[in-house]
Design a binder for these strands. Structure first.
Lengths: 212, 212, 212, 212
DNA sequence: CATGAATGAGTGTTCATTCAT
DNA sequence: AATGAATGAACACTCATTCAT
């Protein structure tokens, strides 16, 4: 027979993430979670020490996922020596679609935003993920893109700022509040494309000269 | 005799704003508020119908303050015919210092960010203030700056995005979480100056050519 | 100028009686009363010592009204030597219309019914008014009606019971709960007439025989 | 070992009924109930959704009990073809002793009387039980008693009124307020017997004729 | 006469958590 | 692995009342 019963612990985590990201940790009761999971409140305490433990468990699994990204990317980078405009755009879009708009990741970041002011662990994680790590990761990529001659040899910090600020802007404007509908996804994607093209005009090495 | 007793209603509002912005509406109890104000819990209900009423009262006063800005600005604009780079920078900095970094306004926006997912009124107000109204206000200003020959006659939308995205970025990175220390203020100010100069290089009309 | 302002104390009493009779003493707050009267809560304490004092003041004025009835009636009785069937019916109806259905009296008895189990003063007054005094008063009347030859010389206690039980029944069935509409008034009146005629068939001295 | 722990839910219902019938729903606090039951306040909410839920649960169980009566009676009726005066009196007394004076039922009706003006559900139930259903039930019985030749073939409605009005009277006079002592029980029983005999003199078919 | 401001005690209810089963 | 039953602490809110003005 197939597995019919889903792993309850995993189910609790999923439901909790969903609720935490929508109402905030402290506004979600164990009752709320159990209601959606379909178990009694006391049962949670078989799987988790307490409510905080659910939150921390979520943080841990998110950290794991997030910290895997740059390493994966480094592996890919090492294989590649030339980058086309299309490839660059593709990578930017996949960061948006496969990461920031990914159901779990998106919910997670929303949860962090709500908890950043209450919970110092959340605040730290939020800043690491959305700013510190993101920026340093991008710096590495941009330096590499300069090295392989795709981007001009400008100040990388300016470039990163020019690239990333609008991404953060789009994220907060469209992806933090409310449901992420297909319509919103399309809108954000389109704005991202416009932004990347705008960005490349300024920073991409002029290939026509190279081709000459 | 001098006034010794502060207006209790105002005091409640101040304390509430402070706590709401730090812990989120639902994590702040009437007990918390009263403890800091120095009154008994039941006394709050003389001044406000209920907890939600405090929140709405805060929203109202914030709305009033915010909607006064563009009108004040319009008055100033009408008196001016030429703008120097210093003046432009000064205006940008004053928006940062006198608005986004203003204790009340800053706390208020933080509160809205925390409540945007729970409270639709908060979500709407947040988007109006930080995106819709801000963008349309800036569009007006930039169009005027183009008209008076300070900025190049580029697509205004792109210009607004180029200008505003980094502001939003700085706001979320440095001004939303944690205490706003003098050190952070200085850091943000410096980054803003860099950003504005970067922006002007691209969009300011080259006066030397004009003078020729 | 004429009196425009009604006597506040009287106004409080009226509103209180209305609310007490509909929701019960303990379910009516000073706030409720003041809201309807149009004064602030603290103002009540100028006119009354406390909430209980309002109740007692109501009881007093009701007692005064009620205890005046038998005396008034005794005066009337002493002037009359013969009674017609119509006159008897008229008196029965006037007790219903001018007393049990009178807005104030009705509200008052309803209030007593609600408070009889909580407040011993109310319980006592309720039983005095609706049973003890009513029965003894009726006994006096029926004895007099026997003496003047209008009613047969039966056991007065049985007669009183036969007469009064249906009145109490009608009162509790139609006049205690809900609004007393004109329709209900008519219905009760009709049932009372039927009852009185039924009663007189059994107990009235057959005048035709006497006249023979 | 024997069961020592009583069913808590049932215990709460019993205590609540007792208190509601004596002080009225809104004057009884959850604290009062829990104090008597011997549990903490929060424990009530494991068994009942809220205070109102206790009330409704009581109403339901009372409704069940009450609506079972006529059906039980119908079964008995179908087996019997002759009725003695003693049997009639016995039934009347058992309605009094086993229903109106039954601890639970009595408390319940008292509760309804107190709540009739506040709670429309209570008002409806009160009128159904004490008037509408009671009257129609009695009509059925009296019609049957006429058919089997125990009661004279008079207008049934008059008969019902003559029978039931004094019962309602006795109920409100002796059984609604205050403790129901053995003394009161005896008094009411005696008055009921007197009333039934009085009633039978008027309405019972004269058996001496039949015996001839 | 009336009110603005405050308060202590209490109300119904929710919460995270415990623990025996 | 789950649940029935309970609980202490907290919660938003209401109440009758007081008192200086």
């Amino acid at each position: 027979m197939n597995k019919i019963k889903v792993d309850t612990k995993q189910h609790i985590l999923e439901v909790s993430l969903d609720l935490f990201s929508r109402k905030g940790y402290s506004s979600v009761s164990i009752r709320d979670i159990c209601g959606k999971v379909g178990i009694k409140e006391s049962s949670v305490y078989y799987h988790f020490k307490n409510k905080q433990d659910i939150f921390e468990s979520l943080c841990q699994s998110f950290t794991d996922v997030t910290y895997a990204i740059p390493q994966n990317f480094a592996v890919e980078m090492s294989k590649v020596t030339t980058v086309s405009e299309e490839a660059f755009l593709f990578v930017c879009q996949s960061f948006l679609n496969d990461y920031l708009m990914d159901d779990k990741v998106n919910k997670f970041i929303r949860m962090l935003i709500l908890e950043q002011s209450t919970n110092s662990e959340a605040a730290e994680l939020y800043h690491k993920v959305l700013f510190d790590e993101a920026l340093s990761g991008q710096r590495v990529i941009f330096e590499w893109l300069v090295k392989i001659g795709f981007l001009k040899d400008n100040a990388v910090d300016s470039m990163v700022m020019d690239y990333y600020a609008p991404v953060v802007y789009l994220f907060h404007r469209y992806l933090v509040a409310g449901e992420i509908t297909e319509q919103i996804k399309a809108e954000v994607n389109q704005q991202l494309i416009k932004h990347v093209q705008h960005f490349l005009i300024k920073y991409k090495v002029d290939n026509q000269n190279q081709e000459c």
